[in-house]
Design a protein around this nucleic acid. Sequence first.
RNA 1: GCCCACAUAGCUCAGGGGUAGAGCACUCCCUUGGUAAGGGAGAGGUCGAGUGUUCGAAUCACUCUGUGGGCACCA
Length: 636
Amino acid sequence: MVAISLPDGTVRQYDGAVTAEQVATDIGPGLLKAAIVARIDGVLADLRLPMEQDANLEIITRQSDEALEILRHDCAHVLAEAAKELWPAIQVTIGPSIEDGFFYDFSKEEPFTPDDLEKLEKRMAEIVDRDEAIERQVWDRQQAIDYFKSIGEHYKAEIIEDLPEDEPISVYQQGDFIDLCRGPHLTSTAKLGDAFKLMKIAGAYWRGDHRNEMLQRIYGTCWRNKKELKAYLFRLEEAEKRDHRRLGKEMDLFHFQEEAAGMPFWHPKGWTLYGTLQRYMQRRLDAGGYQEVKTPQLVDRSLWEKSGHWEKFREHMYTTESDERIFALKPMNCPGHVQIYRQRLKSYRDLPLRMAEFGACHRYEPSGALHGLMRVRAFTQDDAHIFCTEDQITSESKIFCDLLMSIYKDLGFEDVHVKFADRPEVRAGEDAVWDQAEEALMTALTATGLDYTMNPGEGAFYGPKLEFVLRDAIGREWQCGTLQVDFVLPERLDASYVGEDNSRHRPVMLHRAILGSFERFIGVLIEHYAGRMPLWLSPVQVVIATITNEADEYARSVAADMRAAGLRVEMDLRNEKIGYKVREHSLAKVPVIAAIGAREAEEGTLALRRLGDKRQDVVTLADAIAALSKEGSMPS
RNA sequence: GCCCACAUAGCUCAGGGGUAGAGCACUCCCUUGGUAAGGGAGAGGUCGAGUGUUCGAAUCACUCUGUGGGCACCA
């Protein structure tokens, strides 16, 4: 007897081994139809996997998130089957589900064309219509390797060869297509449905290593039903409208051009936004006990050799020669800050010493890495280094995290993804030092109570780091804030302090940035707000738009009064209809339009209209200035 | 850096081996109109750069630069 316990507490008895599919059938046709996969004793498995002993069973239906992942994974398999049918010589490699969809990497002589995507989609639909049963088989390791080699699937054979010895080799067959896969999968291709779409062709290195050959990756999206697919495609379209590169142009904030690839030209409005953000940061850092400094852009290579950056990053540094010496444009501020630190003998009483700089850095980033403001070659970090004792690491880290979260909140970011990146394979420093650094940082992170995920092996070469990650309009992740513990640089650049015991000690350096770079953060900020910045950050806070020329003089005096109150104001006295002006300034994302005509001029009022709002609010000039100044001043 | 695609007016884009087109923006004129486009006229381009093929190249080929999507990289 086999007893199958279901989530609602009921237990079903069977004479012998039974499959989840059978149980679902017994419960009802509705459940069977919706069933995607089973969870047997907490582990996801095929619906047709026989349960030979008592088990806890949960039928995962189409509605669940886990089912969606299975659908996407299956969709990848169907794509691979379609590709094999259309191009028999193609080699299939891997095809996992990912956020919103899946991809599959192929090795193929001729590149895929956009037309191929249509052909593939059509063939995939046919495979779904064929209702091919998807069957799991467990093969002998060598048999599997031989089989995949015999059909020319050398990548598959390589994957099996690299699997742990004790791992069972499971393959899935649908129609004539057999693929190595851990599963689980649907019972049939028909269950996939029709809510999928191939999105784009890309290149990707085999096993993610740039020394390997480049495969052709096809990305697709897959959903439970057409309605969800349509909603997703609509969401993408909407997100495109928030792209900071597009808004940067539309709102006249910045531009790029060929002669300075990866280096933004900030226009007046963009620079106003930048400046406002910088003043805000200055205020917060000042209140946080930081001292602001400024270090040289060009520094002799010898300093970079000492710091170790020359050896590791020389290819990515801009250099210039003068007086037969080689100078590098600074790619970072740390060595400069250590020079300032070293200028006077420091005591333990000086620590923690928090040294901040809005440091303009240049890095020759690989051409393929450039991406609007998010990844540039010239950028300004809101950088700071905290020189402290080992005992102070945890408390300083905690203080920093709190400051960062408070600033992010002011800037409209409530949910921040925190990652803890620990020791990389190639690193400087003893393991004991790493143990200590990681533990101190982890203690601080735990103390903040923030949720985090691990990012194994992704720490800096000199120490572990926290990454504060924000997302852009289409969900791409960008690291903005960071906190790094460093025992190495103080040693290399000989920073020290005199301790209570009257002998010399090495301080620890905490590298930290909150925005990361002004460029990237502003890029994220624009997308986050879809260009509709809060009043205090808006480059233009109010446009005074006249309805007729008769109001011109009043408009000028209103503008003067508002400017005197510190508001950023523009006037629109053009001979255009008010509807035209409203449209234009709305498209430019100006938060407040103050319309004035003869009536307002007469009464000393303004007709205020908030961006996107149909209503207008007629208020006196004095009230308007009081309210807007309050709302428009930066958070403190 | 690697794979694929793209580059035409300030912007968004159409066209395509025989000397360049639209809409918006811009300039001028008319219009002074109460909340997301009033009307008319005009000006504006070595079709990213270079080399080649051709009687002829913006169009075809190649190289380069830049951009987009990925991958790799990210002190």
